[in-house]
Design a protein around this nucleic acid. Structure first.
Lengths: 249, 249
DNA sequence: CACGCACGTTGACTTGGATCAAAGAGGCTT
DNA sequence: AAGCCTCTTTGATCCAAGTCAACGTGCGTG
């Protein structure tokens, strides 16, 4: 994916890299920590890194030594098979963590790509483990985040294993809506950062099927969609679609 | 699933519950710990619990307060949708951990069921976190185990999202083979503890499709299968099947 | 400001796996 | 040792989603 914008000049005044003056407390790793504890975290965040659209944050096979918190922007993670097949394993937005896959073998097992110009905080993993041994709240919160990722993955398995195309897309849209809401954006109106093909890869569908499902939802008055711009008109309708349809295998 | 055997009487001599005299060091949580450290772990394992075939270790919705290490036997975990659809999210064997899903919300999000008479060690989670703050090796190993689970889940997503039926079954058999090998069993011959329907649920297929794929593998001389007894005759053949087939979506 | 190119939509046709149905195989239970 | 019940296999048919193809659309660059 080529970069389409001219390089944005980096501000001459270096923004202080610190959790204590970041507005993502309630979403990110410092969630639930006391003021003093968050100040300890400040030492932890080694630096920020800006990425242009299309740039890789890390690639499968690269050595792991840090996890990343999305400060702004939007990412996808994917796994590639030798024969070229791609599985998108997730889309990450503000406040979410990237790189947990690398802890296991200390080699990243997937790719992380910015889907728009983005910024991440780099958290060296050994520092995080060190501080987790000191701050119980941080330790517990980190464990919750990893566990939440496992639970999320189970949800995706359910989606891929038992749902039909339209149910999958409905689940996907409702999930995005809910995450945008948690970040203070409209639950009903957003721009998709990913292509139909990337949505399809995540949902185990071909891009044409995704496109047709969008069109169908529009015909049925559930959403209004034009290219990447989506407006959800009938949230209960989308939810209902997931409960009452017959499964497939 | 009804229990088919008479209740096995519990030995009058209570087996000492202790990691230090357990032969699963190299598979289970104590992996890589020093002798002294493993002795500290001994306090951690609150007790063992025996389960009959078909019995639930925990259910979705129940409060979480401990994780479990499989000491012997075989489990499945699954998630149920309101409309009755089931997704098997994993099969767990000796040395593997159960219950990581519950850390996130302190409520279990899936069911864990014994597929044969089994025994687990109960590890109260707050104790594990406490000891992790003292023993860096334990902390790091636990993080690796959680991360490995995430990576495994990504593999299942790849399987569900991009592979055709026969590729899925081949991947499943090769995975089992490899895990049995790591436990000192034959890589080529084993009994399946789960039904065709449970395999199907895990692989996102109907039981008939699983059965037909088994039959096809047998016709092609890749395996010999009779009901739950499987003998793998051609491991490279199964591997090849996964690389050279065209994907589906 | 127009051209190119990546992305998206829609139609026609094909197909892998689901569904429906019926018969065989073990292994508990009585 | 008979009978039941669950699991498995196999066949016939159907359909949701894939494939192939052609045409829109809109952004970003020259």
């Amino acid at each position: 994916m080529p970069n389409r914008k001219a390089a944005t000049p980096i501000s001459l005044v270096e923004v202080k890299t610190a959790c204590s003056n970041c507005n993502l407390h309630e979403l990110c790793l410092p969630m639930g920590l006391s003021h003093d504890e968050v100040e300890k975290l400040d030492e932890l965040v080694a630096n920020r890194r800006r990425l242009k659209r299309g740039e890789h944050l890390y690639r499968a096979g690269q050595p792991f030594d840090a996890i990343f918190a999305v400060r702004s922007g939007f990412f996808k993670t994917d796994v590639l098979l030798e024969d070229g097949r791609e599985q998108v394993t997730g889309f990450q937005m503000t406040g979410e963590l990237l790189g947990l896959d690398g802890i296991s073998t200390e080699i990243h097992s997937c790719n992380a790509v910015a889907l728009e110009d983005s910024e991440v905080c780099t958290i060296p993993f050994s520092h995080l483990e060190g501080l987790s041994r000191e701050i119980q709240t941080l330790q517990h919160h980190f464990h919750k985040v990893m566990s939440r990722e496992i639970v999320r993955d189970h949800g995706v398995m359910m989606l891929l294993g038992t749902m039909r195309a339209e149910e999958r897309l409905a689940a996907f849209l409702l999930n995005l809506s809910q995450r945008f809401t948690a970040r203070g954006y409209s639950p009903a109106e957003f721009y998709l950062r990913m292509t139909r093909e990337e949505i399809g890869s995540y949902l185990g569908l071909k891009l044409e099927t995704v496109s047709r499902a969008f069109s169908r939802f529009q015909e049925e008055g559930l959403i209004a969609v034009q290219q990447k711009h989506v407006r959800i008109l009938n949230i209960p309708g989308l939810k209902q679609l997931m409960n009452h349809q017959q499964g497939r295998g």
